[in-house]
């Protein structure tokens, strides 16, 4: 397969940025990840995520409905792990509780919506964000809009096959993997944050 020259990097890219998949970016296999559209070993992506989270001025986590709602024990466990990771990284949390369009508009201080995620990014001056627990289609939609209209660095921790439209994506991420990432972040920061 030809290697795509397209790079998934912070924008603002364009009013209608292309889907990374349409530009030749392919999803990683098990044990792999994507950094800016390039397939890399998972460990390399974990290091990069850690670096991005630690160096970010204003990092935010955007948990989606798959973990915000207590569907089952797995969802509850992943939610707990994500909250611990956000705390370890010193990041704030803004939820994406569902995908309904809101009239007249969302409150960007307390909510992010996949149909206009740029509003939340702009309003809160977010430079790095982490998507986790958002259904595939809506995550890619939001990631694409963010890339199109903001300079925010996007990371997606995906429970399935990953997201081409994120600048860094890990695949097959469940509560155990989130906990491992938390440990890496804590170690990189030099101990457990107070």
């Amino acid at each position: 397969m030809a290697i795509s020259s397209y790079r998934v990097i912070p924008g603002p890219e364009s009013y209608l940025s292309p889907a990374a998949a349409s530009m030749g970016v392919v999803l990683p296999e098990k044990g792999e990840a994507l950094i800016e559209g390039k397939i890399v070993p998972e460990e390399e992506a974990i290091e990069k995520i850690t670096e991005k989270l630690i160096l970010a001025k204003n990092p935010f986590f955007f948990p989606g409905p798959l973990i915000l709602w207590a569907w089952n024990e797995k969802a509850i466990a992943k939610a707990k792990a994500v909250k611990e990771l956000a705390e370890a990284a010193g990041a704030k949390i803004i939820p994406m509780p569902d995908y309904r369009p809101k009239y007249p508009m969302i409150n960007p201080e307390e909510e992010i919506n996949p149909n206009h995620p740029n509003l939340t990014i702009w309003h809160n001056k977010i430079d790095t964000c982490v998507f986790v627990g958002v259904h595939c289609h809506y995550a890619n939609l939001a990631l694409k809009i963010i890339r199109g209209g903001t300079d925010c660095y996007t990371i997606a921790l995906c429970g399935q096959a990953g997201h081409e439209d994120a600048m860094i994506t890990l695949r097959d991420i469940h509560s155990e993997e989130v906990q491992k990432l938390t440990e890496v972040v804590k170690r990189a920061k030099g101990g457990t944050p107070q």
Binding site: P63, I67, L68, W69, A70, W71, A75, I76, A79, K80, K83, I93, I94, P95, P97, N107, E110, E111
Partner: peptide, 18 residues
């Protein structure tokens, strides 16, 4: 009982959802 917010996220959910 399924429309329940995951523990730890109750406070950050917008008022409408609460």
């Amino acid at each position: 009982n399924i429309a329940t917010i995951s523990p730890g996220f109750e406070d950050i959910m917008p008022e409408e959802y609460q």
